[in-house]
């Protein structure tokens, strides 16, 4: 009997159905019977083919997980930087309408601490992740893996954290230890 009732409800638009199933808990009419299933809603998730995620911007973790295959050189990064980044971040990375990406004066305990990639950022993977997903703002997500490594090699070399003529790939980037690597107190966990 109740199966029949539910079958009929299912034909209602989803919104109406949801309100019928879950907001009549105080009624003692036949619908109250439907309420007994309310604590375990019908599963609505469809299987996700995880292969399809790879075409999306992956999350890049500090241990290097998620880094794309590729290789880059600082000298190529310098050219890319002048073409696509200098406008907002300054021709020497000193900052303009957007943050400086090169340099920064310590210490972080100073009255007016300078929080930059060099002085403050704990992980180099954050740099490639940020550029890959959000820069340049007019066309984010379009830089190739080689271009991303070149830009990182350039910015890190200018910050004195990478040898200018050494090719950079996923292994090299993940191995870089940033100066402020241990500068954070985690409130969680």
């Amino acid at each position: 009997m109740s199966t029949l009732k539910i079958a009929r409800i299912v034909q209602l638009p989803p919104l109406l159905l949801a309100s019928l199933l879950f907001s009549f808990s105080s009624l003692t009419t036949p619908l109250a019977h439907a309420d007994s299933t309310a604590s375990t809603p019908s599963p609505m998730g469809k299987p996700l083919d995880t292969g399809s995620i790879t075409r999306l911007a992956p999350n890049i973790y500090p241990n290097g997980q998620g880094l794309p295959d590729g290789m880059g050189l600082a000298k190529n990064g310098s050219v890319l930087y002048q073409a696509h980044c200098a406008n907002c971040h300054g021709s020497k990375g000193e900052g303009a309408t957007a943050q400086g990406l090169i340099g920064g004066d310590g210490p972080l305990s100073a009255h007016d601490a300078d929080k930059t990639i060099l002085t403050y950022w704990p992980y180099a993977t954050t740099l490639i992740d940020t550029i890959a997903r959000s820069m340049p703002p007019a066309a984010p997500g379009h830089l190739s893996a080689d271009e991303l490594y070149s830009l990182c090699a350039y910015l890190l070399a200018e910050n004195g954290l990478w040898a200018r003529d050494q090719p950079m790939g996923p292994k090299e980037l993940a191995a870089i230890v940033m100066p402020n690597r241990n500068g954070f107190i985690r409130k969680f966990p």
Binding site: Y61, S109, Y120, W121, P122, T126, F184, I185, K187, F188
Partner: peptide, 29 residues
């Protein structure tokens, strides 16, 4: 879902609280 934070810009360079000691508090939600 993972067993580690991704350490994005918005939880490292930004949205962390630098203390007088020079250390910064992270994941203060």
């Amino acid at each position: 879902f993972t067993d580690q934070p991704v350490m994005s810009r918005n939880e490292t360079g930004e949205y962390t609280q630098l203390l007088p000691s020079g250390k910064a508090e992270q994941f203060d939600f």
